[in-house]
Write a protein that binds this DNA or RNA. Sequence first.
DNA 1: ACACGAAACTTCGATTCCGAACAAAGATGG
DNA 2: CCATCTTTGTTCGGAATCGAAGTTTCGTGT
Lengths: 384, 384
Amino acid sequence: MAGSAGDLVRLVAKGHGRSRAELARLSGMAPSSVSLRVEELIDAGLLREDGEGASRGGRRPRQLRLHENAGVVVAVDVGTHHLRMAVLDLAGRVLLEHELPGDITEGPERVSERLLEHIRMTLRQATVEELPLLGVGMGMPGPVDPAAAKVIAPSRMPGWNEYPIGRRMSELLGVRVVVENDANLMAVGEHRYGWPDRDNLMAVKAGTGIGCGIIASGKLHRGRGAAGDISHVPVHVPEPVTCSCGHSDCLEAHASGAALRRTLRAQGIEVSSSRQLVELVNDGVPEVTTLVRNAGRLAGQVLTPLVNFFNPDVLVLGGGLSAAEPFVAAVRGAIYERCLPLATRDLEIATAVTGRDACMLGAGALVLDEVLASEWVDDTLSAR
Amino acid sequence: MAGSAGDLVRLVAKGHGRSRAELARLSGMAPSSVSLRVEELIDAGLLREDGEGASRGGRRPRQLRLHENAGVVVAVDVGTHHLRMAVLDLAGRVLLEHELPGDITEGPERVSERLLEHIRMTLRQATVEELPLLGVGMGMPGPVDPAAAKVIAPSRMPGWNEYPIGRRMSELLGVRVVVENDANLMAVGEHRYGWPDRDNLMAVKAGTGIGCGIIASGKLHRGRGAAGDISHVPVHVPEPVTCSCGHSDCLEAHASGAALRRTLRAQGIEVSSSRQLVELVNDGVPEVTTLVRNAGRLAGQVLTPLVNFFNPDVLVLGGGLSAAEPFVAAVRGAIYERCLPLATRDLEIATAVTGRDACMLGAGALVLDEVLASEWVDDTLSAR
DNA sequence: ACACGAAACTTCGATTCCGAACAAAGATGG
DNA sequence: CCATCTTTGTTCGGAATCGAAGTTTCGTGT
């Protein structure tokens, strides 16, 4: 692997390189060069020594970590009915966390205004007062063009189409802003915080909508930009329900939180959010439980060929519905029943390790990657 | 981006770096360093200058290519009813090509014996007589564990399970032997020879069986080893047919060449190979055409969610059935009908550029990658 | 307690590599 | 046809990198 200052910082940031010796092994650089570079990075305030680690049969390594005062990033999860926000240090540790209600249908101007206000307020808090803001990561519940940092052709997000949310935020805050789809971020977050050594991962986000993020060979797979879309895969159901795409047998039209709520409403049961839906399941309301279990079965039906095809190490289930045990059980059942033994033999099927924070943490991880891959490292080095 | 002698050779081999200046840009090394290294490589007989290229507004570049006398690799496509073989130079150009009938059910001992004999015979031919053999790539029509170079749990290949074909060939020939699944190789071959700039590609091989190879970010995606399996995805059909896996609605049981031949046999039409099947289609035999078109529809049905999910740049259709126009048309139709516009907008659906050679060329490309990534380059450099 | 090996750094001379300036060769445009 | 700009490739001194040997510090076995 290549060898420059940035590479070392990134290795430390991802937790793979925790001592000079380890960095030398991973980066391919000579131990002497690593030592020199690390010294510089410590002098520049980017790294810091952090006690000694466990011996592996010889001298104990002097552990390295990113200096917590080097800077912070802000991670935002824009949901359909909430705004979640966190401030992370360069190592991806959460310093502050914060949720406020929101309504994405209010449009991008109002939402971004509220967001900015809260980001500024949060950054004034004591814990992070003096630390420079290095970047912002945002997750959006719809298709995103990350290069343009825009949402494109979303459903349920009036006014957001092509709105340059990334550029706007970037101008007002003066830092880089990366925008990504929420399911993709869930995949990034779970890969980083939950399954760092499993480099092929699928993360299904079953909330108001249904999406899927893909990690292939350790990197987010975007395809031509729309990869991971499973919402309009046809499923086998008795009663057709018209979907926004014009078909009537889409997974999303039958198994998403929005679809379930619609069905319940027709039965006279009013539910306002996925969370409340799950509460009803946990309270043992039979109609709701049946419905949720069936949604899981449908999702499993769709995921089965995808698991055979992609053959991941881990399948992560996240989003609101994943908090309902029957949903998860049904997905598991469908997959084990119909996937090839070769595909399920070593497959882990798990709910999101980071729970409701998955998308937000993924946004943080993504922007951290960008920051640490940028010129910022070298600039900081040469500045001191 | 790293910079050593091997990297330069690989860039030249892949056709991306064709002059010193281009190599400098792509490798990230300084132009001066590239010049020095290239000089060494030319002295060692690995590279050679090849006239001048077109000017881009300044001095004309002195083009570089791999020296054709540096060595050769052998690529083998082991089919169910044939053995195809080629000798390639380091740039992946075919020097000799060769097909002989074969029957994979004769078992690994007899097949590998015949193969060895033919490889040795071919290598004695005038064109490649003096050139060192650097490696062998083999494609097998079943699941492969590339690390162990074995076929694992195949259907229709009695005697091959766990047989160490790679090690055996390697011992007898004295060179490295890489073994891979044929659909994966088709993907590699098509990516290299047909779509070098499209780094997300799916290649479907519809022959006696049905398989799929995946190129993600320019590299073969293996998942946990079984990625690309689409043969046992359930399809929607009126009449169940028992599959080797125990289910009755597998794609392979209804749309593979073997399945079609079985159906035709029940109708009193005896067909011995996929090629003959295609001939009947081209002769306009209606029963056969209908059957093949339906197989294409089923394959398309299965591919639709996978295209949405993986969102490739290119979908390549190869294998025997892809020579039948109705099959290809049906796949195309199914995908355009049911995939998301976002996924099909820039999607290319094409039959294999390299036709029947795809797997074989893929085997060559794969072993070339291995050879050029090995110590061989550095050894050759320091030897002279 | 002591010797020994093993791992984590450090030191320092030799080597490699970079990068800025330069030379070569050609396109472009009056 | 000549001046100017581009691109390619080379030269050469200075700087960064390597790597082999050395130092430090620990586990292990006796």
